[in-house]
């Protein structure tokens, strides 16, 4: 039987994607982004223990396909009225590509819209497994220069690009590139220019910008881990606007999250 390791199922997600969604967070990620807000999901597909108020708490629970489907189906009526559906997130949902594909396939067969959030940092076979059952890919583009990407977050830019292009080619799938704007890292001008060049190459005309936030900081505490961006200030709205304008000037439609 297919089993997946899931560390959270969040219902009534209304701030990401269309409609009212259920987000399934899958354990495991090959990267180690310094700004990661789900650090408990990093590394191999195995449960993680942390301490909250002195109490040990295990994160990550094995679900059969039927068990997770049962959770997803609970909000079916809300997907129907809102055009929402499910989103697989993580971690990196492609790490458990077989389970993800089986889940997406089952969900899609119920007429429920599907989406994944991915960085595409795995060999192309992974994303190819899920694409036939995925209506929307929210594709994170982070650091584009290879040695730097490897050094800072353990990323493989070649994998990322191949996965991204595969997603673009999937005719039934919408791809939305997203850029987390991390001061000192992804939000550097030269990196942004590299992203723009790459989007031009691929003929992509829109992008979502996710300004840096500090929501994950408590988790580093709970995991007893150092948090490199503890002191990193949030981007000012001028800085965000400046980045937004940079994309617009390049004829790329940029949507900024959380900014009214």
């Amino acid at each position: 039987m297919e089993r997946g390791l899931i560390f959270n199922i969040q219902r009534y997600a209304v701030h990401d994607g269309s409609g009212i969604r259920t987000v399934v967070f899958l354990q495991g990620c090959p990267l180690h982004c310094l700004w990661c807000s789900n650090p408990e999901s990093q590394g191999a597909v195995k449960p993680v223990t942390w301490y909250k108020n002195g109490q040990a708490k295990t994160v990550g629970q094995w679900y059969t396909l039927d068990a997770v489907l049962a959770e997803i189906e609970k909000d079916e009526i809300f997907y129907q009225t809102s055009g929402g559906g499910i989103t697989l997130s993580g971690g990196e949902c492609l790490v458990q590509a077989d389970f993800s594909a089986a889940l997406l396939r089952a969900v899609k067969s119920l007429g429920i819209p599907t989406a994944i959030e991915t960085t595409g940092a795995l060999p192309i076979t992974a994303i190819n497994k899920v694409l036939p059952y995925t209506d929307e890919v929210l594709f994170d583009l982070k650091i584009m220069a290879q040695p730097l990407a490897k050094q800072v977050i353990g990323d493989n830019v070649a994998f990322v690009k191949a996965s991204f292009e595969a997603a673009l080619q999937a005719s039934e799938t919408t791809v939305i590139p997203r850029i987390p704007l991390i001061p000192g890292y992804t939000a550097q001008m030269d990196n942004l220019h590299q992203i723009i060049d790459y989007l031009h190459q691929c003929g992509v005309k829109k992008v979502h910008l996710l300004p840096f936030h500090q929501y994950g900081s408590q988790k580093y505490h709970d995991l007893n881990r150092a948090y490199a961006l503890e002191k990193t200030p949030l981007l000012t709205s001028e800085a965000i606007t400046q980045i937004h304008d940079l994309f617009t000037a390049e004829n790329i439609d940029a949507v900024v999250y959380g900014l009214d």
Partner: peptide, 22 residues
């Protein structure tokens, strides 16, 4: 903040339609 903007209203209205069906 759940009800911010047009998207907030749209999703809230959808939520109420589900309430109706429930």
């Amino acid at each position: 903040d759940t009800l911010k903007g047009d998207a907030g209203i749209r999703k809230f209205a959808d939520f109420l339609l589900a309430f109706t069906q429930l």
